[in-house]
C-alpha cells in the first residue's frame, strides 16, 4: 500500500487528503489517480488523455517535482506520494490549473511558419536538408505541458512573462530554414516580457519531460535578438 497525499481545492478552500492505493510494479501515478477516482472519491479532478507522455495534459507536482503523472512509476517514489497542482498556474479545481494564459503567450510569439509566398491552393515543395532540420528539431518536441513554466522564477514574479515554452516555440521557428518571419518574432522577444527577463535559473531544462532544453532555446533566441538589434542600430 502506498499513501497518496493529494492537494485538493474545491473553488473555495484547499486542503490535503490521503488515500491508500494498492501499488504494484508497472503502476503509474496517473493509474493511481484513476484508481482513487473510480474507487474512493469520484470528485477528484485531474486532466489526462494519452497516458503515453505525448499530449501534455497530466503535468503535476509529484513529490515536489513537476512531472507527467502518466510516466512516473509509483514504486520509484517511496511509501508516500505527494501530488499537487503545478506552481505558477492558478488552480481551478484539485489538480486542474488554468492554462488559457499559457496558450495565449504561445500564440503571442507567432509560432507558425511565416512566408511571403504562402500559397494555400497550390503549395510547392520547400526543401530542407537533414542538417537544417537538426538545427531546430529538438525544439519541436515541446508538448506544452507547462512543467517549465511552473518552476520558472521569472514567471513566478511576473505574470506577463512569456515563459520558457513560448520562447522555445519562437526560437524553433526562427531557426527553421523555411521561415521568413524572424524580424517580427525578435521584436516580440525583445519586449519587456521577453528574453531579457530570463534569469538563467535553468530549472526549466531540468524538469522538461521531453528534454527539449528550453533554457538553451531562450538563450539562443536572446543571442539572435541581440544581434538583430545591434544590426539595426548600426544600420547594416
Amino acid at each position: 500500500m502506498v499513501e497518496f497525499k493529494i492537494r485538493r481545492y474545491d473553488g473555495e478552500k484547499s486542503y490535503w487528503q490521503s488515500f491508500e492505493v494498492p501499488a504494484k510494479r508497472g503502476m503509474t501515478v496517473l493509474e493511481a489517480l484513476y484508481y482513487i477516482k473510480e474507487n474512493y472519491d469520484s470528485s477528484l479532478a485531474f486532466r489526462a488523455s494519452c497516458r503515453m507522455g505525448i499530449c501534455g495534459s497530466c503535468a503535476m507536482k509529484i513529490n515536489d517535482k513537476p512531472r507527467l503523472a502518466c510516466e512516473t512509476q509509483v514504486l520509484t517514489l517511496g511509501n508516500t506520494v505527494k501530488v499537487e497542482p503545478l506552481d505558477n498556474f492558478k488552480v481551478i479545481k484539485d489538480l486542474i490549473t488554468e492554462f488559457d494564459g499559457f496558450f495565449e503567450k504561445l500564440k503571442a510569439v507567432k509560432p507558425h511558419l511565416i512566408r511571403k509566398d504562402d500559397n494555400y491552393a497550390e503549395p510547392k515543395e520547400l526543401l530542407q536538408t537533414p542538417e537544417e532540420l537538426n538545427e531546430y528539431y529538438v525544439f519541436t518536441l515541446c508538448i506544452k505541458c507547462g512543467a517549465c513554466y511552473s518552476v520558472c522564477p521569472a514567471a513566478a514574479t511576473l505574470d506577463e512573462y512569456l515563459g520558457p515554452a513560448a520562447m522555445t516555440a519562437a526560437y524553433r521557428f526562427c531557426a527553421d530554414s523555411r521561415d521568413e518571419g524572424q524580424k517580427e518574432r525578435y521584436e516580440i522577444a525583445s519586449s519587456p516580457n521577453g528574453v531579457w527577463r530570463c534569469h538563467l535559473a535553468m530549472e526549466c531544462s531540468e524538469v522538461c519531460p521531453k528534454n527539449v532544453e528550453p533554457a538553451k532555446a531562450v538563450q539562443l533566441l536572446r543571442r539572435k535578438t541581440a544581434f538583430s538589434m545591434l544590426k539595426s542600430l548600426l544600420g547594416w
Binding site: 511558419l113 504562402d118 497550390e122 526543401l127 519541436t140 527553421d176
Partner: peptide, 22 residues
C-alpha cells in the same frame, strides 16, 4: 499529396532525404 506539401509549407518538420526532399 497536396496536403503533405501544405503541411510542409506550414512548418511540419518532415523527415528528409539527403537532398532535402521529403
Amino acid at each position: 499529396p497536396t496536403e503533405i506539401l501544405r503541411l510542409n509549407s506550414w512548418g511540419c518538420p518532415w523527415s528528409r532525404d539527403d537532398s532535402g526532399k521529403i
